[in-house]
Amino acid sequence: MPQFFPFRVRADLIAIAVLLCLAAVFPTQVQAQDIAALPHDLSPMSMFQQADIVVKSVMLGLMLASVVTWTVLVVKSIELVTAMFRVRRGAARIEAAPSLRDAIATVDGTGAVFQMMRATAREMNRSAEVLAGAGLRERIGSHLQQIQLRAARQMGRGTGVLATIGATAPFVGLFGTVWGIMNSFIGISEAQTTNLAVVAPGIAEALLATALGLVAAIPAVVVYNIFARAISGYRQQLTASAAGIERLVSRDLDHATAGQRI
């Protein structure tokens, strides 16, 4: 799960350090021609272009995961802020309304709160002949609970991909790192030399894959945790609104019972 992400990053960094130490055990003699052969452009774009197809695929996948993370952040933020505004305004109007009918008239015709009130009113109309029955409150509570669960589930859509990115991106980046260092060792074997001109580009490409993995994973974990807390607060607001609706129903039933007695 995303909460164990720091421990996974630590394991990835340890693995990278071990691989770099293995590369360092070879004696390195840097001569003038070796320095001249070193690549002069080690920018991220240049390293991406020089990488092989496997490392390029890893980098492209991680960049796509990063784009998905920021897209989910923007879209879900707008959706969550809008839903929270509607729920809070609906809860305030429920508290101020003297009856369920008045509350329905003042609440906007969209959002989970309006759906809960409409479902409550529909159940009361269906049970008009037995309003004082003990089963009415149970049926209304069942409707309210189902609407709350459905609204919370809809709000949570899209956040699962953040957890997946946060959990897998470091390992995908580590795979690119291992593959790049393997290519460096293969280059050492084929060239039969251990100079920096052979080792440095592959090591740089490998470390770029790990960096992209962290760039994709860290925001995903942070955004996922933020949304998890925000959705929990949204569910609490829905619960408070449902409790207000149940109080309105209880008040309406008491008024109806008092009217029948009079």
Rank of each mutant, 00 (worst) to 15 (best):
3 Q>G: 03
3 Q>V: 08
16 I>E: 01
17 A>L: 11
17 A>M: 10
18 V>H: 10
23 A>V: 11
29 Q>I: 13
29 Q>S: 10
36 A>D: 11
37 A>I: 13
38 L>W: 06
38 L>I: 05
41 D>G: 13
45 M>F: 01
46 S>W: 10
50 Q>A: 11
55 V>K: 04
56 K>N: 08
64 L>G: 02
71 T>P: 09
73 L>C: 06
74 V>D: 00
77 S>A: 14
78 I>C: 10
78 I>D: 05
79 E>M: 15
84 M>S: 09
88 R>N: 09
90 G>I: 06
92 A>K: 13
92 A>H: 06
108 D>W: 00
110 T>V: 10
111 G>I: 05
112 A>I: 04
119 A>K: 03
124 M>N: 06
125 N>W: 00
127 S>V: 02
129 E>S: 07
143 H>R: 14
144 L>Y: 07
145 Q>A: 14
148 Q>K: 05
152 A>M: 01
154 Q>N: 15
154 Q>G: 12
157 R>K: 12
157 R>D: 08
158 G>C: 04
163 A>L: 01
167 A>I: 03
168 T>F: 02
169 A>D: 08
172 V>R: 00
176 G>S: 04
178 V>P: 02
178 V>W: 03
179 W>D: 00
179 W>F: 07
180 G>D: 01
187 G>A: 11
191 A>S: 13
195 N>L: 03
196 L>A: 13
200 A>V: 07
207 L>Y: 11
208 L>H: 12
209 A>R: 02
209 A>H: 02
210 T>W: 05
215 V>W: 06
216 A>F: 00
217 A>G: 03
217 A>K: 01
225 N>M: 07
231 I>P: 05
239 T>D: 14
243 A>H: 13
246 E>A: 10
247 R>N: 13
248 L>C: 07
251 R>C: 07
253 L>V: 08
257 T>S: 11
